[in-house]
């Protein structure tokens, strides 16, 4: 007899479920959904630039957008720090922004995400008040950021600290999520986690009153580096 009754029960349930599904008659045939065609056929608004559309939508979700240039972004970020005054900023090592960011704050205000979550969890929930991440792109249609968390920039970096600062390159703004997904060929190698983030976390669960900062960040600052492409 098997040593694992749960696995046996699983197998029994699986067998029974598939037996019933397989025995069912075929449904009315439908065409394979042409999602790409659907998005291709949709009219893209022409009255404003893609970047302008992104900014407008992101702001409508209470994200703050700080526009800067490839040359000036460290200064702009310093401005964000001066404004938000993070006491402890969490960041990932070895990313495109890491060194520059580290140069902007005193070492004791930096917390590098160097160890697995278990070792940093308490600090992360109780002490760290800001996290900074890179992004892999954005969606103009909805004002959303796209993140693929990595070993350097884990999932919780954009989740637990009350302030999330995200660095976005203008040339990586796509019109739609579909465009981002297909251009970047996500399905070729699905990351363990892909996030689309639109504004800070929020809830309207009490009497439909909208409150920002439910369980995730209360504030989202997008540092938008205008490096062309999104016009």
């Amino acid at each position: 007899m098997s040593a694992n009754p749960i696995r046996d029960a699983d197998a029994r349930a699986r067998g029974a479920i598939f037996k019933r599904l397989r025995a069912a008659p075929a449904g009315e045939p439908v065409a394979v959904p042409d999602v790409a065609g659907y998005y291709a056929a949709r009219a893209v608004p022409q009255d404003e630039s893609r970047t302008a559309r992104f900014i407008r939508h992101a702001q409508s979700w209470r994200a703050e957008v700080v526009e800067t240039t490839p040359a000036d972004w460290p200064q702009a970020l310093a401005g964000v720090f001066a404004d938000k005054r993070p006491a402890r900023l969490l960041l990932g090592r070895g990313t495109a922004i890491a060194e520059t960011v580290a140069g902007l704050l005193p070492a004791e205000q930096l917390r590098w995400y160097d160890e697995p979550l278990a070792g940093i969890k308490k600090e992360l929930f109780d002490e760290v008040d800001a996290g900074i991440t890179t992004t892999v792109g954005a969606v103009a249609e909805t004002g959303s950021l796209l993140l693929h968390p990595t070993p350097a920039e884990p999932r919780t970096l954009s989740l637990i600290p009350p302030l999330h600062i995200a660095v976005l390159h203008e040339r990586q703004i796509f019109e739609t999520l579909h465009e981002a997904m297909s251009t970047q060929r996500w399905t070729d190698a699905m990351p363990t986690n892909v996030l689309m983030i639109t504004g800070p976390s929020k809830t309207a669960d009490i009497q439909r009153v909208l409150v920002y900062g439910a369980h995730g960040p209360k504030e989202l600052v997008i540092l938008l580096i205008r490096d062309g492409g999104g016009a």
């Binding site: 979700w61 959303s144 999520l177 990351p191 363990t192 986690n193 996030l195 689309m196 639109t198 976390s201």
Partner: peptide
Amino acid sequence: AVTTYLNIISG
């Protein structure tokens, strides 16, 4: 139009 998070988990 969208939710704050679209969380796509593959493992």
